[in-house]
Design a protein around this nucleic acid. Structure first.
Lengths: 337, 337
DNA sequence: AAACGCGCCTGGAACGTTCCAGACGATTGT
DNA sequence: ACAATCGTCTGGAACGTTCCAGGCGCGTTT
């Protein structure tokens, strides 16, 4: 399996090698490999056979260079370990694949500078579009990228970048649904373990406050930002004696569950895979992540088709009720069923 | 911010545009942008300024084409959602970055055919090396890829592919450590919820059987394969009344925890992020994933440097003791501390 | 004074593909 | 019989870089 006849030694075979082996011009090889109808059946078969024999693989760099597009979509992630992100990616991949694109992921590893660097790498590769699954990237960097290639951001940006479409869920509505669920169970003393000032977390907090006010419970509003130390924040919030807690995300909710007596109901946000796995299983607000990913890809597609105006899509989340919520005074279950 | 002077309209600026703007040859621009010492300080500054003004970004396709290498490492993953994988990736990224490589990820989405397709995509991109974090890929596909570019597989292959280095943990040793821990706590009736025949799971089962035999407990050996329905398998295993269970991985361990009375001790394998999050927190065998990722990158590096013989590295795992194991008869804790 | 070395710069040839204009026979239409 | 058309196929020009051989001016050595 070492030296295959017809190939220059030590080099990967090119279209020219295949052409020589099949006794035709390189142009015809190119046509044949792409299945062009203007190639006679017999010659086509011979070319394919030769390519196969030589172990030829097309060189995407060269193709991309001459065509000016690569049929590659780049996905930029802050944090691979975040299950929220990965489900969005699955949606992107599905839609991209259907349109013949290859998806490559670049990873920022929770570091803003690295994130910008990775975005740059993708641009240098001439990807045909970028989906950014991160709120960490600044509007300037995003807008700059959008000047060269379609860019969609999944999530809620601090600031809208011109030329960049966005896909987000309606955080305020999700928060409302969570709080309403607790109200309907009969809770009144509902606290909120809040986020750290990101646009999403602010909307969630606003939804919480609003719903409490509408229920005539403005005095019961109890908010504690989660800060750096989730456990401390959870403990301090619980020290105020709420009957239920709406947490800004699942991890925060877990911290609450950990410190709360079993009568306290807890709702999370994001419906990550954690929610299924913990005991009690966590009631949580689900973002339609796969759909968001698909939609992001469609927005890219539209941009490639020439759309110029910016679009900002907001999707409705849905509450998923599990075992961590119960009427006041009832114990959540714990451990084996 | 629309039409920048000096750029041909509608095209991204190239090195030639920069050259024209700075009044030098394209060759000099190339040298200047790469920081070649043979460029006078003054001219260099002028070129950089021009590049900046035009918003120039180097084209990696063209560079890769002429240099024959891309300074990109590809990582092929079966399953993004698997936290085991993502930590390996972090290790790869760290080591790759230190050597000036960019890491791009391709995702097989738990589909073998897609996995092969993605591998092909990476090869077409002329990546300088591939780390495969998956046991799904056949030896033939791996060997084929290894013929064009260095390939390292992280995990235990069903069959060693020629030309492909591997990095794995010592599953048998890990299993021994887990079982010994249970023995030391005083357990004798130790069951095993086994995997589905992958090389890793077979080694883990072997380690279990061996250790039981050495402890004179050959008669107590109790093995149930996990199959498709984890919950059923766990319930059936528990119906045999073991005092402790060593499970083939964390997810299987969780299924056992779910159905077991609190006196039953449980050990998992892989020490995924789940282990920290469940209650009781799961005792589990940890693979040094980040180190495995780094090592994989180093093996690639060696191959690039010309090594030809195959290397198969096996790293020692370590047991992480948490709350899911206790002496026989004692209750594991549950819920708040 | 010629030769050499050095710092700085340039033009053209790669790299592997696709695109384009057109060549060559054979067939068809008038 | 001649032009037009069609099905196949070809050679060269892109694409945007890097690499290479060398050029020019100037100071230093022989």
């Amino acid at each position: 399996m070492v030296a295959v006849t017809g190939t220059r030694p030590g080099r990967r075979p090119t279209i020219v090698d295949v052409a020589a082996a099949a006794g035709v011009s390189k142009s015809l090889v190119s046509l044949a490999l792409r299945g062009d109808p203007g190639v006679s059946e017999e010659t086509g078969a011979r070319i394919l056979a030769a390519a196969d024999r030589l172990g030829y693989r097309s060189n995407r760099l060269a193709r991309g260079l001459v065509q000016g597009r690569t049929m590659i979509l780049g996905v930029l992630l802050t944090d691979l370990a975040n299950p929220y992100h990965t489900e969005v990616v699955a949606g992107v991949e599905e839609a991209a694949e259907a349109r013949g694109f290859t998806v490559l992921l670049a990873h920022g590893r929770r570091d803003r500078e690295r994130l910008e660097h990775q975005l740059d790498s993708l641009l240098q590769l001439n990807v045909d579009g970028v989906v950014v699954v991160s709120s960490w990237l600044g509007a300037a960097a995003l807008a700059d990228a959008a000047r060269r290639v379609p860019v969609v951001m999944v999530g809620r940006p601090r600031e809208f970048a011109p030329g960049v479409d966005t896909v987000a869920n309606d955080d305020e509505a999700g928060a409302r649904a969570a709080v309403r669920h607790l109200l309907e169970l009969g809770h009144t003393r509902i606290g909120h373990l809040a986020g750290s000032g990101s646009p999403s977390s602010r909307s969630r907090e606003a939804g919480y406050r609003e719903t409490m006010r509408e229920a005539g419970l403005a005095e019961e509003v109890l908010v504690r930002p989660v800060g750096d130390d989730r456990d401390r924040a959870a403990a301090e919030l619980l020290a105020q004696g709420p009957g239920a807690v709406f947490a800004v995300n699942d991890l925060a909710a877990l911290a609450v569950l950990d410190h709360a007596p079993p009568e306290v109901s807890v709702v999370g946000y994001d419906n990550t895979s954690l929610a299924e796995v913990t005991r009690p299983r966590l009631t949580s607000v689900d973002q339609p992540r796969a759909i968001m990913g698909r939609l992001a890809t469609e927005l890219l597609w539209e941009r490639m088709g020439g759309r110029t105006g910016d679009r900002h899509e907001v999707l409705a989340p849905a509450l998923v009720v599990r075992d961590s919520t119960a009427p006041p005074g009832e114990r959540r279950e714990c451990g084996a069923p």
